[in-house]
Design a binder for these strands. Structure first.
Lengths: 227, 227
DNA sequence: ACCTGAACACCGTTCAAGT
DNA sequence: ACCTGAACACCGTTCAAGT
């Protein structure tokens, strides 16, 4: 309450004051650049440039690039709506929906997906997501250890799918596959020849949905070793 | 048979002749460096240096770094023994064994695993592996579309697991997890608190094996959409 | 404590010029 | 066709020196 009598809390001259650095500020700029140009452009040097400072200054607030990417992921996770309770008997549907939302989120940010794969995120919003997934598995009466081990698998599938598909969409490397299944010599690879076009059948959505269904089924029904 | 009469096929002076560049030669050096120091050291510049040339010269033989990594992976895949036929009724065991061998191969080369994840390999030895996996799924009477869609998933799980675990082993970032499951406030994340230590229970091997079992079960029993 | 410029030790890829 | 040096356009991180 002993306020700033008279003197404005801005810098001496009228020029736009250089805002103080902060972890949140750095992350916010990284998120913006990611949306506009992709995470790979949100380098330490670029961030520093946008914040009108030197790259070295950022290291006061973030340990390294990996940690920064973790913070960006957690920020992005705020956009996933975790609130809907699954109606009774609908846990499977809701689980697939949630995993689909997470996949889609990463799908349009392939470089974030690639980072997330080697990150083991620990941010609050990531923990919220994991907690929600566990709640749904519990609603489905999945034994506790299977749920605990399985939740990792589900998230990994989502992340890896996004990293893989998203990157290929980016580099246009996907068409190789369409080619190779047809060009494969049937004599040398009889089983590839046998399944033929099934290797590339279905839409990305259909395959993604089926993948989650299959993995959830396996998690729910396959017993873990005792211990 | 019109052999090199008299003149030795080496360079004029006795100095070690600079061997001609070739795609195989480049890949061989990359494989050696990967074994000795990790794939991340096998950069274009380093390769060129070892081959006593400029980095630009390599681009005559490989399109880019991604393609080079694909060739390295295929080379490494020659070490997996695909020959054993699965005894009747043992397809599941053999499938897990094969996937385990692939995982282990990548596990000690995390940077290769990370590359493989976004690569969609098409080398002959990779196709052999896929063919073998498909043969085993056929031996298990898995419907053809489920096998075709599932084989991708199995390979992805192996690759992602290796990339994730291997990297953490490398950077020592894994211990975070051990911490966070205990430090998580039970009030905010009730389901994480409920499963508690199960989130980190079991050895890497046990979890890996269970993951493959669960996914194989799901692939074998979950129907794909008609079409 | 926070911030900085400069340095260290690198990258992948392209290109004009040579042979 | 193959090979090259040099250039272009970058990286992450550390460190001594300032405030």
């Amino acid at each position: 309450m002993t306020a700033s009598r008279g003197r404005a809390p801005v810098s001496r001259r009228e020029r736009p004051a250089k805002p103080a650095l902060s972890r949140d500020g750095i992350v916010a700029v990284a998120v913006r650049i990611m949306h506009e140009e992709g995470l790979e452009k949100a380098t330490m040097r670029r961030l520093a440039q946008e914040l009108d400072t030197g790259a070295a200054s950022l290291y006061v607030y973030v340990r390294n690039t990996a940690e920064l990417h973790g913070a960006v992921l957690d920020q992005l996770l705020t956009t996933i709506d975790l609130s809907p309770e699954a109606p009774a008997g609908q846990w499977r549907e809701r689980l697939i929906e949630l995993l689909g939302a997470y996949t889609e989120l990463l799908f349009t940010r392939p470089s974030l997906a690639r980072s997330a794969l080697t990150l083991r995120p620990t941010g609050p919003h990531y923990l919220r997501l994991v907690d929600s997934l566990l709640a749904l598995l519990r609603a489905g009466d999945v034994p506790v250890r299977q749920a605990a081990w399985g939740v990792d698998l589900l998230v990994q599938l989502a992340t890896a799918t996004a990293a893989e598909q998203g990157t290929r969409k980016e580099t246009g490397a996907g068409d190789d596959l369409t080619f190779y299944v047809r060009d494969v010599p049937a004599g040398e690879y009889p089983d590839i020849a046998r399944v033929g076009d099934e290797l590339i059948s279905g839409t990305g959505r259909q395959r993604g949905r089926w993948a989650f269904e299959a993995l959830i089924d396996g998690i729910a029904t396959t017993g873990t070793p005792a211990g």
